[in-house]
Design a protein around this nucleic acid. Structure first.
Lengths: 236, 236
DNA sequence: TCAGGCGTGGCACTCAGTGCACACCACCCG
DNA sequence: CGGGTGGTGTGCACTGAGTGCCACGCCTGA
């Protein structure tokens, strides 16, 4: 094992990457459950104890960058101002996750195939996704603190955003990472935004003389009302 | 260990129940992770091997009835006719889960406290919830097969229904199972139904003179407009 | 009475994960 | 220069979950 120095100032320990690479080689050629941690460390040429220094569990080696991504998302949500439209903000936060997947399409596709067929990994992925969802929900709870049903709305909208994101992400992964991932996700998130009323407003901002009048029957489905408004406002 | 006969035709093996009882006694008095399977089988007076005959893993003993409940939900969804309103149907399916929790309030509350503080159990619960969500989503996918965005809508609505249900369920559990669980869930599910268009509408439907007029500046954030409408319509 | 199924128990084994002690290396300090 | 000192990698022994296998008792039907 060459004791390589950390080159070019990237703070990445090379050993960690070596373990991920060795793990995936074995997972792909003989399956996740058929690979023991001993196999991985043998191929990587390191001690078994070191594996658990970098990854708390065998499953963690399959999701090596989610911890960082979750931190990025939390920071992104904390950075926002109170002028941000909340639902749009959490949609943008979800796009951060997509970007991480899109950075390494082949790796992401391999991991997707792995998690699809190994129940243990699927369960682990659920707990990862759950943490993203919690981060979004906590943000929305703060932003909706004034609303009567803020907590409920926050949880539901966070779940919907995550579901839409995952739907688009998975369809992209199923296509072997061909095509542009972001368009599918944009489309899916737009659906959620339309359902929950918040639509990006950016371009039209300065024409205060334009006024829209909407007449709605009390008891009408809210989404129909929103659809009308969207149509009237000239987008959607 | 008295070799009791199966009384009154309930198809329940007594050994299974004895294991659940022994497990929860130990979990509550010394914690989940501090209790080994050996402890459980010793208290229940059975062989260690028999534990894994009834429960595939130590975690399963905490959720002894979810398997049956999931089967009930699947059957319920399969039984429905094509005339059912789909979103209403999945909401009713979610209420089945609530009913299971409400059948044993004290047990449900104990389990809730346990899962809240043991990460491993939380992860396991996620995979249980995921299976419910999949069942709902599969049903909606079938019902929405004709829609352009049927798959996306099915996944998003299923996630929203589950999130709303869980939000209400947890608030009920946090109150130690006091009060009526169903009212909170009804309320939460009504919010989801209003967001996704299928509104029961029953009582208000016949008053076409109730009209809401909203005046909005073009370019105003749509979510602000929606907030006004929600307030005016008297929900939210 | 014997044959065969079934529920159960015991035993040994694999493997993930942990605690602990030790070795090595860099850097700092007197 | 010698001796701390902290971080990082390693070896070892141990716990505990989960599994495969086989043997035993029990019940049932031929």
């Amino acid at each position: 094992m060459s004791s390589e120095k950390d080159e070019a100032g990237t703070g990445k320990p090379p050993m960690r990457d070596a373990l991920v690479a060795a793990a995936f080689r074995l997972f792909l050629e003989r399956g996740y459950e058929q690979t023991t941690v001993d196999d991985i460390v043998a191929l990587a040429g390191v001690g078994r104890r070191s594996f658990f220094r970098y990854f708390p569990s065998k499953e963690d080696v399959v999701f090596p960058d989610h911890e960082r991504c979750l931190a990025d998302m939390t920071a992104f949500l904390a950075d926002g101002s109170d002028d941000d439209e909340p639902v749009g903000r959490v949609c943008d936060a979800a796009r951060l996750v997509l970007r991480m997947y899109a950075e390494n399409p082949t790796f992401s596709v391999q991991r997707y195939r792995l998690t699809r067929q190994v129940p243990g990994l699927r369960a682990y992925e659920l707990s990862v996704v759950w943490r993203y969802e919690r981060a979004l929900a906590e943000y929305l709870r703060r932003r909706f603190a004034a609303r009567r049903e803020g907590i409920l709305q926050a949880d539901v909208i966070a779940a919907a955003v995550v579901a839409a994101h995952n739907n688009a992400l998975r369809s992209w992964l199923r296509s072997d990472g061909r095509g542009e991932a972001s368009t599918a996700v944009d489309h899916a998130l737009a659906y959620v935004q339309s359902a929950f009323g918040a639509v990006p407003v950016p371009p039209v901002a300065e024409r205060p003389e334009d006024v829209v009048v909407v007449v709605a029957r009390r008891g009408a489905p809210l989404w129909r009302v929103v659809q009308e408004i969207e149509a009237t406002l000239g987008r959607g």
